[in-house]
Amino acid sequence: MRDNTLKYVLVLPAVLVVFATAIWPLMESARLSATVGRLNRPGSLDQYIGLENYTWAFFEEPSFWNSVWVTGVYTLLTVGLTTLLALGLALLLAPGGRLRSGVQTLLILPFAMSPALIGVSFRFMFNPEFGLFDAFFGVVMPPLADVSWLADPTLAFAVCVMADVWGWIPFLTLVLIGGLASIPQDTIEAAQVDGASGWRVFRDITLPQLGPVLAVVIILKSIFSLKTFDQIFMLTNGGPGTATQTLSHYIYFNGMKYGQIGYAASVAWLMVIPMILLTYLYAKYVFRKN
């Protein structure tokens, strides 16, 4: 066999796997989004209705817009908070930073936990009867002890954000520590001697040089926040009501629980739009030419 042919043969298995697990389901979901697609109605998976599912989501379903809103706020808050806190920690933990050593190892622990597990543990911690927070506030601030954290829409949302930020900080911190370590130390020292205060060194020298890494971190985290599912599912299951129902959760509910697979597929495709945009930006930063 010629080398030229051989190389295609060698790649073929991988291409087939990708096709079967990614491309085909993607195309199938696109097809389903144009059908009535009720799991409990035989034949409806081939009953085409054009873009009706999409217009339904846009114009007839306030719960869709609720999920868009929840997902948007959730993404903004988790990305913002995680990035800021991770940056602060990275500055403290980076070579030449003020902490370091053993703390770094300790910090990675939350990242070793699966999101679903984080969801369950936070649910237990915020349990109003036997939760950790109940016990803690019972001693420190009794009025807060009996608050049903997960029953209040705003508080439940805040708990979701908190759990996510807690789980993601380690990874982003590690990435940012790497970014900080790659900044030449002498540019920072040069700025110090040139007369810059600590804050100005950070703003004028450190931050601009960290820029590309920071952009990658923000984009990556945005993607992960947008598609958050497991944690929410375990922690609040979208509730109370639909106060914490993100789009992924909304899609799951409509598709799996209500059997409206066609409608769920169309919402999933609506989510693809911001995802493609973010993926494009990500690729641009990661593979950018120097």
Binding site: P184, D186, T187, E189, A190, A191, Q192, V193, D194, G195, A196, S197, D204, I205, P208, Q209, G211
Partner: peptide, 27 residues
């Protein structure tokens, strides 16, 4: 360092890579 009124030239130059030469000298 900023209060000592010294100027330093580094072995690896320590130039600010994201600034133009003008901004480097002006910093």
């Amino acid at each position: 360092p900023k209060d000592r009124d010294v100027a330093m030239v580094f072995q690896n130059y320590g130039l600010y890579p994201h600034m133009t030469i003008f901004d480097n000298i002006a910093y």
